[in-house]
Every structure is written in C-alpha cells, then in structure tokens.
Design a protein around this nucleic acid. Structure first.
Lengths: 175, 175
DNA sequence: ACGATAACTGTCCGATCGGCCAGTTCTGAC
DNA sequence: GTCAGAACTGGCCGATCGGACAGTTATCGT
C-alpha cells in the first residue's frame, strides 16, 4: 500500500506538479481513501520527501566519488554519474525541478545544496574563472533538465531519444 | 494599476510558481483588493497569459527569421536570438517553464509548439539524425533553463554571471 | 454643478485544500 | 475463539482557493 501511494504520487507529481496534485487526486489514483495516505505518511510533504530522498543520497554519493578526481577525469565521471542519476531517478528529478522550492533545505534532504556545489567544483576543475563554473553548471543541469522539463518536445520519438542522445552528446570532454 | 498587477504577478509567479501564488498574494503585493485584479483581468489565467504573450510572439518571430538560414549560420543566429530572448523575457520564461502545463495550447499563445519545433529544425540543420535534433533541443533549452530554473545556484556571483557566461559558452558552432 | 463612465472594493459564494480523529475492519499470534 | 494491534476509512474541521456581484468612489467632459 505504501508502495502504491508512492508510485501514484510520483506519477501525478511528475505530470501535474506537487502543488497541482491534491491528496484526493493521489487517493483516487491509488483507489483508497484520502485519510489512508495520512496514515502511512505524516503529511503531504512527507510523501514528496520520501520520493526525493534516494535521489538526494545518490547525489551526495556522486559528489563524494568525484571529490578526489581532477580535470577531465572528474568531468567524464561526473557526466556518466549524472546521466545514471537522471535515468534512475527521472521520476524524482522531475519532481525536484518543478517544486524544488518546496523541498529544498528540508531536513530529509541534508546537504543538497552542498552536493550540487561540490559537483560544480569537480566539473569546473581547479579553475577559478567564473566562466568555467558557469559552463560546469550548465553541463550539470542540462541532462536532468532536458529529461525533466515539462516543455513540449516537438515529437514523441525525439522525447524517447532524449536521454540516450544526451548521454552521447555529453560523453566527451566538457571543453 | 494594470501594470502594477503585472509586475507583482510576474515576480510572485517567478518565485512561487503560478499554482503557488494566489490572487490574494498578488493583491497584497500590489496593495489593493483581490477583487481589483478581477476587474482588470477576466481571471487568474488571463494575468499569466498576458505576461507570456510577448515572449510567445518573439519566439515565433525568431523562428521566422531563422527559417531561411542554414547550418552554422542558423545555429549562431539561433543562439544569439535565444540569449536575447532569455535576457529580455527572463521573467516570462521563468513562468513559462514552471507552469508550462497550465499555459501551453492556450489561445493567447498560438503556435507556441510550432515555434519551438521550427527552432529545433533550424538548429539541427538539414540533418535527419535524431541525435542532431536532440543536441539542438538541448542547446535550445539550456539558456532559458539555466537562467530560469529554480534550482539553487551555488553562489550569488555565479547566478549573476550565468546569462553572460551562457552566451559566451554557446557562442560557437554547435557541433 | 452634474451626470456618465471608469476604477475600485467589501462581501459573499461554492469548491477544494491539507489535516484530524473516532471508529471500523482486517490479520495473525496464541 | 479471542484479542491486540495494525490497517484503513467516513466524516468533519478551519482555512483558503478562484470568482461573482452589488455598491462605492474617483475622474472627467460638458
């Protein structure tokens, strides 16, 4: 049941956004009473937090793995890791992007900001030039954003190819 | 007054999202009664639509300008045009991205999907390879997405540099 | 000064929101 | 069979949502 709720919530959050999805919407999708959701979860936020938690953990782990690397090595590893992340957690990433303001700095996701900053540092290498960090930031967000954005993708085959294409496109030195 | 409403709505939509902003929020920010908003605008959607309208028009015009171009020429012009767009309409683009599902296919924004598709075609050149279109799509969304996303930017100077950095980064052949 | 029109607001409405709680049903150990 | 505890639900709550409308105030041509 818990798993059913998470599954429905993930799908609905991804298509309508967190604020655009009511508890009743989720309950109807699951096929249970609204009150049942609040038996399994303290409140609505807790549902989203549990969906995002693994993504937050993996992001932190990725930052850990990249910390000791340098330059191109870090860049390639970062890209590979990010693609893996956006594939494995496409659901959660989509939620994260749409309603990031709801979830950021929540106790369930400790150090999310720090993880992102460390990833930017790894991607940018040891360069202090703001331009390098900008470029790193763009590369960092490109994959999840393109897979997660609600913007209409011109055609369906393009949408299907998007993640694989992004992988191939990014699988090269960043500069 | 109309202009005050649009100004407040743009700021609030951009920070809290369309669904996360109530009419009362806007009215409080403007310093007037909620009912006043509905005197100047038919409903809440109409406020957002009016904010997005110019961006939609300029997007269509950009697609027009790029249609006759080819290859690298189109790519460079597209990038320049998109940067200009995301600079001039950062407010609206941000709204567009967050709540695109609310606004897409609205009569106030005719041909938005078509404009985007035509821009992808221009960027991809005459290549039929799906990978080329994927790459074009990514370049297309990278600028507005990086400037518009609600994701936390590691530090403030980085946020300030973002658009200019994106311009420099993208100011080169796409492939 | 006056009437017309525009600008604005107080107040109410039905709907829906997230959340709470008493009470019912299900399940498994004994 | 019994019963304790987990699982679940119907019904309710106050708050807030977008919106409607009658009525008030400001503006301005004459």
């Amino acid at each position: 049941m818990r798993e059913d709720i998470l599954e429905s919530a993930a799908r609905l959050f991804a298509t309508r956004g967190f604020r655009g999805t009511s508890l009743q919407d989720i309950a109807s999708d699951v096929g249970c009473a609204k009150a049942s959701l609040l038996y399994h979860f303290r409140n609505k936020d807790a549902i989203l937090a549990e969906l995002l938690a693994p993504a937050g953990r993996e992001l932190a782990e990725l930052a850990d793995r990249l910390a000791p690397l340098d330059g191109d090595e870090a860049a390639r590893a970062a890209v590979a890791g990010l693609v893996e992340l956006s594939l494995g957690f496409r659901r959660q990433v989509k939620i994260l992007l749409q309603d990031v303001d709801v979830m950021i700095n929540r106790p369930e996701l400790p150090g999310l900001n720090e993880s992102i900053e460390r990833l930017v540092d790894s991607l940018a290498g040891r360069s202090d030039a703001p331009e390098a960090r900008v470029r790193a930031w763009m590369a960092l967000v490109a994959v999840p954003l393109t897979t997660a954005t609600g913007l209409p993708v011109p055609d369906e085959t393009l949408r299907a190819e998007l993640t694989r294409g992004a992988l191939r496109t990014l699988d090269r030195p960043l500069d």
